[in-house]
Design a protein around this nucleic acid. Structure first.
Length: 526
RNA sequence: GCGGGCGUAGUUCAGUGGCUAGAACGUCUCGUUGCCAACGAGAAGGUCGUGGGUUCAAAUCCCAUCGCCCGCUCCA
């Protein structure tokens, strides 16, 4: 769809366009803004809906092995005990007071001991000079390598201080692994957003806003199984908001504390899980390509063993090359039977599937393709943004896939002073609006109207000119034909008004080239 | 959370103690033109992020606060 590489848009440029044209606004802007929250404006909401609708259509409606679900954001507190979030999402953190780095308190000693500067110190102490006079050897190190490796160790800062230097590595626990600075007391960190259920705060139940939509699917596994009589393998899809107290939100809508997920939990028999995992990786990768993400800006990244979440057997991220670097769009994990087993254990309810062939109850394995809606929307916007030179002028154009574009067609009068042209254009727009997001605009010259639509990614413009309605003064009859202009090529064809609604489904499926061969090109000025 | 940078019109920015805070683009109106950001005339739009302080006088200096960006860090 996009045959040539384009320089990547700066995030600031995109933020500005998004605000100017009504894609994305900062949350609560009139009050100075709320960090980490963004509102989708009139065009943004269309883009996001299109994205979710396509995902739902492709992953639920067009597959016989998938059903949908919409679980509540608030869930029983036990859910998070069973899932592991209550413990794994609430680790105490400690921070370096000199360089600001954060560490999980329970892993900090381990990190210190494997840090570069402690290993360097260990070498110094164990070396010949260290065996002879550790204090002197360490002072020498502090004046040389120590300055680079651990600049914030007190005795590296002041190597002339006569106080003895601790000369056993384990005495140095509690220093920052990166710079040697002093660490704060561990503070409890809860990455789940907490609130109270019930109007009276003092007596209300403390609950959490879900940090992922997945658990809503797991706790409904048996309900869905009973209601739909699905057989393995099958999946449950869900789109919805999740919440996390991210330590560092930022990069526009990429990381926010409130975000929307589109998740699938695909249940299959143990033994065929690896095969299904690979199928979903391929399927999801192809999906992003299908709607136009450039192949060279998309990659799969296999999680290393030590990077895997404790429940996962394998995990592959689909990453996009954002302006800030390669970042995750979607993670596809093999969660094994961990979640169903945990919920069965904590709830006391069996969450199993009766395998007719084996005549036994089994706990299915789960493949989880989990994508971020906001991240995908951002990636598609970045991917679509182009700046081109047309007749010495800059043209900004969002080359969004037609199915993602917020507005599918703009109907424009060539002359806004001619009532017959205007009313004809308005009639066409009304007819188009019955099926697609269509827009009428007559507030500027035609060139400007085209560029406005380019900037918001409208794939096609329909223009009503004099020939369409005829010119009584010159005795010319109406030909009842209008021009359709293609956003990306700026080419135009001349199509009978009566055939517009037949042609547009094909155009919106990306079929400009096919349609353009069936109609005569329109030569402006003729 | 730490370090650095920044916050002035819808957008991009100028203005560093002194008249009614400006420009470009965008938006709107009128006229003209009529197929790729045309031209002319006019208009709207800012308590200079917010709060406090210093001063005869603050967009400008100081403090606090909020937000954004970059880096570090964290990330189911």
């Amino acid at each position: 769809m996009l045959p040539y590489p384009a320089p990547m848009v700066e995030l600031d440029t995109l933020v500005s366009l998004c605000k100017r044209r009504g894609f994305i606004f900062q949350s609560s802007e009139i009050y100075g803004g709320l960090g980490s929250a963004w509102d989708y404006g009139p065009l943004g909401v269309e883009l996001k809906r299109n994205l979710k609708d396509l995902w739902w259509r492709d992953n639920v409606h067009r597959r016989e092995d998938m059903v949908g679900l919409d679980a509540a954001i608030t869930m029983h507190p036990k859910v998070w005990e069973a899932s592991g979030h209550a413990t794994h999402f609430a680790d105490p953190f400690t921070g370096c007071q000199d360089c600001g780095r954060h560490y999980r308190a329970d892993k900090q000693d381990e990190a210190s001991q494997s840090s570069k500067w402690i290993q360097a110190i260990r070498k110094v102490i164990e070396g010949p000079a260290g065996q002879k006079d550790p204090d002197r050897a360490l002072r020498n190190w502090a004046r040389s390598d120590g300055k680079k490796l651990a600049p914030n160790l007190p005795w590296v800062k002041n190597p002339d201080d006569p106080a003895p230097i601790p000369n056993r590595p384990e005495w140095l626990n509690g220093r920052c692994p990166a710079c040697g600075g002093s660490l704060s007391e561990p503070k409890p960190a809860n990455l789940m957003l907490r609130t109270t259920l019930g109007p009276v705060e003092a007596t209300g139940t403390v609950i959490y806003l879900r940090p992922e939509t997945a658990q809503g699917i797991f706790v409904n596994f048996d309900n869905v199984l009973q209601a739909t009589r699905k057989k393995l393998p099958f999946g449950i899809a869900q789109i919805g908001k999740s919440f996390r107290n991210e330590i560092t939100p930022g990069n526009f809508t990429f990381r926010t504390r409130e975000f929307e997920q589109m998740e699938i939990e695909y249940f299959c028999a143990p033994g065929i899980d690896e095969e299904w995992h690979q199928k979903w990786i391929d399927e999801r990768h192809a999906w992003y390509l299908r709607y136009g993400l450039r192949n060279e800006n998309l990659r799969l990244r296999e999680h290393a063993k030590d990077e895997l979440a404790f429940y996962a057997k394998r995990c592959v991220d689909i990453e996009y090359l954002f302006p800030m670097g390669w970042s995750e769009l979607e993670g596809i994990a093999n969660r094994t039977d961990y979640d169903l087993k945990q919920h069965a254990k904590v709830s006391g309810r069996p969450l199993t599937y009766f395998d007719e062939e084996r005549k036994e109850h089994i706990v299915p394995y789960v493949i989880e393709p989990s994508g971020g809606v906001d991240r995908a929307a951002l990636a598609f916007l970045i991917n679509a943004h182009h700046e081109e030179e047309v007749r010495g002028e800059k043209r900004v154009v969002l080359k969004l896939h037609p199915e993602l574009a917020p507005i599918k067609v703009a109907v424009l009068p060539l002359l806004k002073k001619r009532d017959d042209i205007v009313s004809c254009a308005k009639e066409i727009c009304a007819a188009m609006r019955r099926r697609w997001a269509a827009l009428y605009d007559d507030s500027a010259a035609i060139g400007r109207l085209y560029r406005r639509q380019d900037e918001v990614g409208t794939p096609y413009c329909v223009t009503v000119d004099v020939q369409a309605v005829g010119d009584p003064e010159k005795g010319e009859a109406a030909d009842r034909k209008v021009t359709i202009r293609d956003r990306d090529s700026m080419e135009q064809i001349r199509v009978p008004i009566a055939e517009l609604t037949d042609v547009f489904p094909e155009l919106l499926a990306g079929g400009w080239n096919r349609v353009a061969t069936r109609y005569p090109p329109h030569a402006p000025g003729s």
